[in-house]
């Protein structure tokens, strides 16, 4: 669990302080992986399979999120020609 906390924290750090939006998405994946490690290890120690079912759904949602997020990144790049969060400061299309 300490391991999972450490990975989650690194993910939070990356999410809050990187400039490139793709790295920010990878930090989100890192946090989801930390949660998965925690779920599967607890499911092993509690001898119950429900944690692994939950981890399974987390993986499915992570795949969906990555697909949508990267599609948004590509659409954004086509319009703005940048991948840095500092330079994206307007919501007008």
């Amino acid at each position: 669990m300490v391991l999972s906390t450490a990975v989650f924290t690194i993910g939070v750090f990356g999410f809050l302080s990187r400039k490139n939006i793709i790295i920010i998405f990878m930090s989100i994946e890192l946090m989801l992986n930390a949660v998965n490690i925690n779920l599967i290890s607890l499911s092993h120690y509690l001898q119950d399979l429900r944690g692994q079912i939950l981890a399974f759904f987390v993986i499915a949602v992570a795949a969906a999120e990555a697909a949508i997020g990267l599609a948004i990144v590509i659409a954004l790049f086509r319009n703005k020609a940048t991948a840095h969060v500092d330079e994206i400061h307007e919501m007008k299309g």
Partner: peptide, 25 residues
């Protein structure tokens, strides 16, 4: 440069979360 200007804020926040979860574990 690879980090945004306010990256120490992110680091502080992350260390804070780590300490909180570590104590509550």
């Amino acid at each position: 440069t690879r980090f945004i200007g306010a990256w120490p804020t992110g680091l502080t926040f992350a260390i804070g979360i780590f300490i909180v979860i570590f104590v509550s574990i």
